[in-house]
Amino acid sequence: MNIFRIIGDLSHLLAIIILLRKIWKTRSCAGISGKSQILFALVYTTRYLDLVTTYVSLYNTVMKIIFIAVSIATCYLIYMKFKATYDHNHDTFRIEFLLAPAVILALLINHDFTFLEILWTFSIYLESVAILPQLFMVSKTGEAESITSHYLFALGSYRALYILNWIYRYHNEEIYDLIAIVAGIVQTALYCDFFYLYITKVLRGKKLQLPA
């Protein structure tokens, strides 16, 4: 495993822990898009079904279980335990506009027309756009809490680091997966605007506020 991959995974892990901790500590999910969290839970459960068919390594198994468990726990906190604090009036992105294309594209463009492979492909396509409801919510309210910004930065960095990992693997192992690469580039590109605001504002101690 190369350095980009391990830092990418840790960044991903950090992101989901930041979010879970924020909700738990403040007893509130204000500013968090439940819809993005449902999409992420769907991404991890459909991608990691191979847990029951393929053993890769202890690291791989543990991380997969953590991602599935934490994403479901986050949805539980938003939609059940702290439901009263969920800002559903601002979480109005229509997720069927993301789900339907991801399903259709997975059926059309995949490596192998088998059940697990299509679910894996679906999860890759869906992950690339799953943050849109959250970014839409931030743009609608015009601001984000610092902790939400840190969450978004860690989550966005993870796929950017994976791109470096893929470049590294292409050079050193001559391995590449075009579906993951294209989706990963789309995913990272969606964060670019946010990355700019994060670096120019949040890192200088200001709140992330969009220009009116």
Binding site: M1, D50, V56, N60, H111, Y162, I175, D177, A180
Partner: peptide, 10 residues
């Protein structure tokens, strides 16, 4: 399959 080699990724 084609992506057997990258299955270790998350």
């Amino acid at each position: 399959s084609f992506r057997d080699t990258t299955k270790d990724e998350l």
